[in-house]
């Protein structure tokens, strides 16, 4: 769905994306009709629980969907090209150079047999005409930027000689070195400790803000996303249930699932007085191969009606309750009975 409120043309425009997996057990509709835009320099958070389809959106953009998976429908427009229609050769010239990806596990994202210097320079060797000497200088500069001490020496070290946090810094350096226009980070700090996570989130934000890169941050951690993102997209069973400005989504969620997620997080105020029960979302995420008819969240939803169990809600946009300054911002909800917000 186009977003007229963003004056600049979006860098990335995903429209009606469907990524399905044809398994023996049935069709897994991992991504089922997802649309969103990412503006230049924007930080977008894709949140949801396991099985929500958030990682598959990242893989679809990167052209990393392998059989039995397939992009069934929709377009992924990136700077005037539809990535969904490009061949592997063309994708390879985009991957790493214009769109880079950071994976969850820094232990497996690096090749244990090459020095990290090798792995950082590889991107430059592939995508630039720089000489070996220039590449080395750039790699040192980049390692320095991501906060790795003594980069000249560290260049010659192998991944196993780095701690988890340091490895993820190397991965960020590799992703950022070709100055991509878009960075996709899939659970980049989930495997790391809180103090290291805070260091890396800060580093990533600084890197994308300085270089004007757009960031799609994929995570299950609503708190981390609320600290970083301009826009939040909430996914449930392969579909967008809610999308809007980050503060709006956190402060005034309209979809019962988003509300449930937020309320599931133990809150600061719990410590005062009696320990309250956490408000929980009952039941489990359904088997995505056998989704119920109508709204996929209906079986767990306190507001569900007969309508919800028979008819798919459509993602529809309305203006946020704004403060009147700036252009109107849009809040999209796919729900027959959205929560009302008190003004």
């Amino acid at each position: 769905m186009p977003r007229p409120d963003i004056a600049t043309t979006p860098l990335l425009s995903v429209k009606g994306l469907r990524t399905w997996f044809h398994t023996f057990g049935g069709i897994v509709k991992a991504v089922d009709g997802v649309s969103f835009d990412v503006a230049p320099g924007e930080i977008m958070g894709l949140v949801g629980e396991s099985g929500g389809g958030k990682s598959m959106i990242g893989f679809s953009i990167m052209g990393l969907i392998d059989p039995p998976g397939r992009i069934e429908a929709g377009s992924i427009e990136f700077e005037g090209r539809d990535l969904a229609t490009l061949g592997e050769d063309e994708m390879r010239s985009i991957r790493g150079k214009e769109i880079a990806m950071i994976f969850q596990d820094p232990m497996t994202a690096l090749n244990p047999l090459y020095t990290i210097g090798n792995q950082i320079e590889e991107t430059l060797a592939l995508h630039t005409m720089l000489s070996a000497r220039e590449r080395r200088m750039k790699a040192i500069e980049m390692l320095h930027k991501v906060g790795i001490p003594q980069p000249e020496q560290r260049l010659h070290h192998y991944p196993h000689q780095f701690s988890g946090g340091m490895r993820q810094r190397v991965v960020i350096a590799i992703a950022m070195i070709a100055q991509p226009r878009l960075l996709i980070a899939d659970e980049p700090t989930t495997a790391l400790d809180v103090t290291i996570q805070a260091q890396l989130l800060r580093l990533m934000r600084q890197q994308v803000v300085e270089s004007g890169t757009s960031l799609v941050l994929i995570t299950h951690d609503l708190a981390a996303v609320s600290q970083m993102a301009d826009t939040i997209v909430v996914l449930y069973c392969g579909r967008i249930v809610e999308r809007g400005p980050a503060e709006e989504i956190i402060a005034r969620p309209r979809h019962p699932y988003t509300r449930g997620l937020i309320d599931s997080i133990p809150h600061e105020s719990d410590v005062d007085g009696a320990k309250r029960r956490l408000s929980q979302i009952p039941g489990n995420v359904p088997d995505i191969r056998r989704l119920p008819p109508g709204c996929a969240f209906a079986p767990r939803c306190p507001r569900a009606s007969e309508l919800c169990r028979t008819q798919d809600p459509v993602l529809s946009e309305r203006e946020c309750v704004g403060d009147g300054s700036g252009p109107p911002r849009l809040h999209a909800i796919a729900c027959h009975h959205p929560l009302t917000v008190s003004p």
């Binding site: 989130l201 708190a223 600290q227 997080i265």
Partner: peptide, 23 residues
């Protein structure tokens, strides 16, 4: 430092978060 680093819902990355250097 640990408390400052923990992400809080709805607060932007605070000045104290990520300040604890080293490992």
């Amino acid at each position: 430092a640990l408390l400052a680093a923990a992400p809080q819902l709805g607060t932007k990355l605070g000045p104290a978060a990520g300040q604890l250097g080293g490992e």
